[in-house]
């Protein structure tokens, strides 16, 4: 280590701060961080695929390639989309808060919002990856036929549908300690998957639980996914818009509460 001479030339991008460059680097480091953490990336990608092969392909009714197969695929896309949002934001935020990284980032001249935007983009990326892999499995092993439009809509649904779960994850991340966050999120993620009718038909659940299902964001997203895959038979733009609106309201609520908590408690 020599003395500081201050004679080095500024790099090519000097002269101003590029927000896009910051967002790109933040997103890239977030991606590398998650990719290099197998305890995150393997279950996030692997579990929905494994569950789909087991329940959506091997244990599904014979000749489920039609409307039933499409509905099952839609449900597993929702199941796969929830995890990157809940874990990707909830666990990493709780860990960053615990370890003081969030305080350092806030003290450094990191533009407000870049930290969350990078995490959001990463969650969207993982959600789309999971959806693509699920659709590939559905097309090959499950013999589910999907048109280009349905594929595109499901991908868009995955990218946008992860946002409410990012909000919920963020809120949990502001409420829990780093090490407890995965357990707390699992306690919400798995019950929500069953109680909202995503992994179990609501008809097999006790009536009062089925009635509460619309309170879960997973139910709302599942209804939207169902609208996409069953466009031919039950498509109703008005109904889809209603679910999208409820989901948007839930998302706003999660983000507003999480933001308040972050401002008050860091």
């Amino acid at each position: 280590m020599d003395s500081f001479d201050g004679t080095s030339k500024p790099p090519a991008f000097a002269g101003g701060v590029s927000m896009l460059r910051i967002l790109w680097l933040e997103t890239r480091t977030e991606y590398l961080r998650l990719l290099r953490t197998p305890s995150f990336s393997v279950p996030i990608i692997g579990f929905p695929l494994l569950f789909y092969v087991l329940f959506g392909v091997m244990l599904s009714p014979p000749r489920a390639g039609g409307a039933v197969g499409q509905a099952i695929l839609g449900a597993f896309v929702v199941f796969g989309v929830m995890a990157p949002g809940l874990f990707g934001l909830g666990v990493t935020l709780a860990i960053d808060r615990d370890r003081g990284l969030l305080a350092l980032k806030r003290a450094l001249p990191m533009p407000a919002g870049t930290y969350l935007a990078a995490k959001l983009i990463m969650a969207m990326f993982f959600a789309v990856i999971v959806s693509v892999l699920l659709m590939l499995l559905a097309a090959t092993l499950g013999h589910v036929a999907l048109g280009i439009l349905e594929v595109c809509e499901l991908l868009a649904l995955s990218a946008l549908g992860v946002v409410p779960f990012c909000g919920l994850g963020l809120l949990i991340g502001t409420l829990t300690k780093g090490q407890a966050a995965p357990a707390v999120i699992n306690l919400i993620y798995l019950p929500m998957s069953f109680l909202s009718g995503v992994l179990l038909p609501l008809t097999v659940l006790p009536r009062f639980i089925a009635r509460l299902a619309p309170a879960w964001p997973a139910y709302q997203l599942d209804q939207l996914a169902l609208a996409v895959v069953s466009r031919g038979s039950e498509w109703s733009a008005g109904l889809a818009a209603r679910h999208a609106l409820v989901l948007a309201g839930m998302t706003a609520l999660f983000f507003v509460i999480a933001r308040r908590r972050l401002e008050r408690h860091g």
């Binding site: 500024p10 790099p11 000097a14 002269g15 101003g16 701060v17 590029s18 460059r21 910051i22 680097l25 933040e26 890239r28 480091t29 590398l32 961080r33 290099r36 953490t37 370890r99 003081g100 990284l101 305080a103 350092l104 450094l108 001249p109 990191m110 533009p111």
Partner: peptide, 24 residues
């Protein structure tokens, strides 16, 4: 009290922090 992310390389950490500044 600030611990940096364990899984990131040193050059990656410096690159992202440098990007916040006008003349790094």
């Amino acid at each position: 009290a600030a611990a940096l992310p364990d899984t990131l390389q040193v050059r990656e950490l410096i690159a992202v922090t440098s990007s916040y500044y006008v003349r790094p």
